[in-house]
């Protein structure tokens, strides 16, 4: 606890140079990025899922979908990138849960990093590594669908980053709220499934049953999918979806931080 008190003081030192405050955040983020890339199996399985979804499922199901004005392959291709980044962003929760189970969290808490820097660094690391991971897939879709406007691409990448940042916060919230390992696995998988399936990532809202269509507009994956499509296909900004994404990030980063502190510090937030 004495160590955390020291960290509280450091984090409250508003006169510290911004570079000194940023360095630990960047260190935490770099650690999380390297952790993901040290576990190639996760990357292999998610990449395989993306490739099969795009080149088998989307290609074949597009032959069956016959809706005027809807290029379903293009729709699904953009949505599958959004779905994949959501999926990979959830992995940070598994990392944090495992660290707590294996006692690595205790070691991490002894590092000379304030709690606030610690949580921001972890969330940032989770989001950045998801971006690094998904960019090759984004490139595949951009080449296939001939998306070449730099502003549209930048807008789409911003949407993806915001989604990744928010989901990282959501994943951390779940990781520190659920104690049982089996239950944690299944709860996280269920949340992942629910927010991806009940969203506009994979199919247009007009074709959803009414009970799904009522919820889908509020899924963060819908915000990201709509905004990304607006940027790439319509070369425009979907401000409502963008605002929804920002709200999602703020809410779940805040919740993630609050739950994390409550777990490690018994409720003392600093």
């Amino acid at each position: 606890m004495s160590s955390s008190a020291t960290q509280v003081n450091v984090s409250n030192n508003v006169t510290a140079p911004s570079g000194a405050l940023m360095a630990p955040i960047v260190q935490m983020a770099i650690r999380d990025i390297s952790v993901l890339f040290r576990t190639p199996w996760i990357i292999i399985s998610r990449s395989l899922a993306f490739v099969i979804q795009l080149f088998v499922f989307a290609a074949l199901i597009s032959k069956l979908v016959n809706v005027t004005g809807l290029d379903f392959f293009q729709y699904y291709a953009v949505g599958s990138v959004v779905g994949t980044i959501a999926s990979i962003s959830f992995i940070i929760g598994y990392d944090i849960f495992e660290e707590a189970e294996e006692g690595v969290l205790d070691y991490l808490l002894t590092l000379p990093v304030s709690r606030r820097q610690f949580i921001i660094g972890r969330a940032l690391g989770g989001a950045v590594r998801a971006m690094i991971y998904v960019i090759p897939m984004f490139v595949i879709v951009a080449v296939l669908e001939n998306f070449s406007n730099p502003l549209s691409i930048a807008g789409a990448l911003l949407d993806l980053f915001l989604l990744a940042f928010g989901i990282t916060g959501l994943s951390i919230t779940v990781a520190v709220s659920v104690r049982n390992a089996n239950r944690f696995d299944v709860v996280l998988a269920l949340i992942e499934l629910a927010i991806a399936r009940a969203s506009t990532a994979l199919y247009p809202i007009a074709f959803m049953p009414s009970y799904v269509a009522a919820l889908a507009p509020f899924s963060p994956v819908s915000f990201a999918a709509d905004s990304t499509r607006a940027a790439l296909i319509g070369a425009s900004l979907d401000l409502v979806s963008l605002a929804g994404l920002v709200a999602f990030v703020v809410i779940f980063l805040g919740l993630g931080a609050a739950f994390y502190f409550r777990r490690v510090e018994g409720g003392v937030y600093a």
């Binding site: 199901i61 269920l190 399936r197 009940a198 994979l202 199919y203 959803m208 049953p209 799904v212």
Partner: peptide, 18 residues
């Protein structure tokens, strides 16, 4: 719950799309 999402969300939506 997973089954219900698969059936009543994904399958139901693809059922209307195709």
């Amino acid at each position: 719950a997973n089954f219900a999402i698969d059936l009543f969300v994904t399958a139901a939506t693809f059922g209307r799309l195709i």
